[in-house]
Design a protein around this nucleic acid. Sequence first.
DNA 1: TTTAAAGATGTATTTTAAATATATCTTTAA
DNA 2: TTAAAGATATATTTAAAATACATCTTTAAA
Lengths: 171, 171
Amino acid sequence: MPISFRMRFLSRNLGGKYNERAGKVKLMRLTMYTDYSLRVLIYLGTKEEDKLTTIQEISDAYNISKNHLMKVTFELGKAGFIETVRGRGGGIRLADRPENINIGTVVRQMEEDFQLVECFSSEHNTCPISPICGLRGVLGKALHAYLSVLDEYNLKDLLFNKEGLRDLLRT
Amino acid sequence: MPISFRMRFLSRNLGGKYNERAGKVKLMRLTMYTDYSLRVLIYLGTKEEDKLTTIQEISDAYNISKNHLMKVTFELGKAGFIETVRGRGGGIRLADRPENINIGTVVRQMEEDFQLVECFSSEHNTCPISPICGLRGVLGKALHAYLSVLDEYNLKDLLFNKEGLRDLLRT
DNA sequence: TTTAAAGATGTATTTTAAATATATCTTTAA
DNA sequence: TTAAAGATATATTTAAAATACATCTTTAAA
Ligand code: SF4
Ligand code: SF4
């Protein structure tokens, strides 16, 4: 993730003179971990049913760390989205048909939690107004809306252009 | 934010033996920066209209760093949500009536961006399937749903229990 | 007319956790 | 019996969030 030196240096500083956006900050994103999970599922979805794919192959296709993908696939296997076959000639494949793999379910499983703000975790919360804070409920409702959209889609929906995906992934 | 040594140590590792959730990871949250912004607005909303409040007072009420709040208020001022008065006897106050301060607007302004995954930034994107990726659109739609919920609320909605908030904030 | 209280601004440091790397296991087909 | 595959554990690097510090400017009150 190349980010210019200046941006980095100023990231958490004040603004105005140097940089319009300095002082602000960015979160509200998924981890690459979760995105990689979905990329693996998309890749497997472009393959013939039941055919095994090695992690190396996926790592090459997306040009991302094989070590990282090892962990992602391990989790995907534990969660039951893929089947893994060890040993020579082994590999991974979807554990179910793409239309049965829900995107919301995958994201919920692969992200550890959805603690948007500290009061979402009773363990870490220090905010004095949390018992009666209206913001809490609003954020919860917004999060629910977010996940509900993901719940509307399954892996097959993401594969509508399977040929195009195959082209881009087998270089 | 106290987190147990073990959890921390294992955070990015593999799982099973030690910890059910190890290997997963958490994001998808707002920055404290943004939450603090809203806390400031809530605090100001409990005050009488036009009365000035010092940053020190808010910092004491929530028990959070005054330095941090200085930056938050600076940004809130720049964005036009509050008015700041410098010099002795100065302080900050809402720039408008609570019903005119929209929560979605505040969150959009205070978070730098909403790049859920790398392909949301054409500058940093390396994902080979981005031209035809269905996931991209789905995530965009989900984000939109999230922000739309916030757009439905304004500061006054968060102040329905103003007396309760006053009690919790003036200790 | 000086002083002290307030916000404004810029820079530096610390801490968290995401991302990555390394090393060694186990499994299994050739 | 070896080589290719995934499984597991630990260690390191990097990004950026969180915080701290230092100094400036503004302004009302002493
Ligand atoms: S202000 Fe509300 S939403 Fe934010 S941490 Fe406190 S209780 Fe939670
Ligand atoms: S897989 Fe899709 S959503 Fe994820 S980075 Fe690639 S293009 Fe974006």
